[in-house]
Simulated assay, not measured.
Amino acid sequence: MDKIAFLGLGHMGAAMARRLLDTDHPLTVWNRTAAKTEPFTAGGATAAASPADAVRDADVVITMLADPPALFAVADEIVPALRPGARWAEMSTIGPDAVRELAGRLPEGVTLVDAPVAGSTDKAEAGELKILAGGDVSSVEPVLSRFGTVTHVGALGSGAALKVVVNVSLLGAVALVAEGLALGDALGLPEEVVRRTLESSAIGGAVPRAFAEDLHFDMALARKDAELATGTADLPVVSAIRQQYADAADRPDTAHEDIARIVPYIRERKS
């Protein structure tokens, strides 16, 4: 069985890596905060002291990191340690430019696939994520399918591009629900009536996410994703949405809360 190295055990990464514990794949894990590896070693995985140690013998490398700077810091350590024939599935939300830059750093014989995911921590725990894959995914698809359904998007970088579209659309929909509720407040409408009516409207799918209590999509990561989008195209609406999440990410009480926290934040600001 392929030896797997999984780097990055944040909210999403940990939920995904747990899906590999009950397989026959030898699993090595690494995280900058080493204590986060302890539940995995208790489950049979090996904890690596450094990113390079994690990937040295790996057939498949999976990275699930916060942003491009975090990815490139790890890449600086692991690229020299990758063995010929290794396959790297980059699953972070970093945008297509970062994927292409990463590909340019790799030695001959190492294959890179961009495979970010759509879905939150609940879907990750259930193995029901949508994996948006760019490049030749065939050699890692059996491993990626442990996390959910793999969709072949196109050439290398296309999965990362589509992920930015998906995330920014989600962020916009949640913010729009928040402003709809804020408008209802200003007009003196009962919250329950507004919420129930929005649920049956064209943006109804975003309402449950706007009120989710057991999911985690970090506010600071939301700002990062919106910045990836506005750095690519002229998007006036997304720019306004980005500012809302940026303001919330700058506040100590909401900086690392789930994006659902944007709803009371926006309503408080509009009242």
Rank of each mutant, 00 (worst) to 15 (best):
A5K: 02
F6A: 12
F6W: 11
L7D: 13
G8K: 14
L9H: 13
L9T: 07
G10S: 12
H11I: 10
H11V: 12
G13A: 07
G13H: 06
A14N: 13
L20Y: 11
L20C: 10
L21K: 05
D22F: 02
T23L: 07
D24C: 14
D24T: 15
T28M: 12
R32G: 05
A35I: 03
K36N: 14
T37P: 09
P39Q: 14
F40A: 15
T41V: 15
T41E: 08
G43Q: 09
A47V: 11
A48T: 08
S50E: 06
A52H: 12
A52Q: 09
D53H: 14
A54G: 13
R56W: 08
R56L: 11
A58W: 05
I62D: 04
P68Y: 00
P69D: 04
A73W: 00
D76V: 03
E77W: 04
V79E: 04
P80M: 03
L82D: 02
L82G: 10
R83S: 00
R83V: 02
P84I: 12
P84G: 12
E90H: 00
M91A: 05
S92R: 09
V99T: 12
E101I: 08
G104F: 08
P107C: 06
G109M: 10
G109E: 09
T111G: 11
V113A: 01
P116Q: 01
P116V: 04
P116E: 02
V117G: 11
A118V: 10
G119Y: 14
T121H: 03
K123P: 05
K123R: 14
L129T: 10
L132W: 06
V137I: 05
S138F: 07
S139I: 06
E141C: 00
V143S: 09
L144H: 00
G148V: 00
G148I: 01
T149Y: 06
T149Q: 14
T151F: 09
V164R: 02
N167E: 06
N167M: 01
V168R: 05
S169W: 08
S169M: 14
G172C: 11
A175Y: 08
V177Q: 07
A178H: 04
L181W: 08
L183T: 04
G184I: 04
E191Q: 02
E191H: 03
V194L: 14
V194K: 11
R195K: 07
E199R: 15
G204C: 14
G204D: 12
A206D: 05
F211C: 09
A212Q: 07
A212D: 02
E213Y: 03
D218W: 03
A220I: 04
A222Q: 02
A226Y: 03
L228E: 02
T230S: 08
G231N: 06
T232L: 11
D234Q: 13
D234A: 13
L235K: 15
L235N: 15
V237D: 07
S239C: 03
I241W: 01
R242P: 03
R242Q: 06
Q243I: 05
A248S: 13
D250V: 00
P252V: 14
D253Y: 08
D253F: 06
H256I: 01
E257D: 14
D258E: 06
I259M: 09
I259F: 07
A260I: 14
V263K: 01
I266Y: 08
R267I: 08
S271L: 10
S271V: 10
S271N: 13
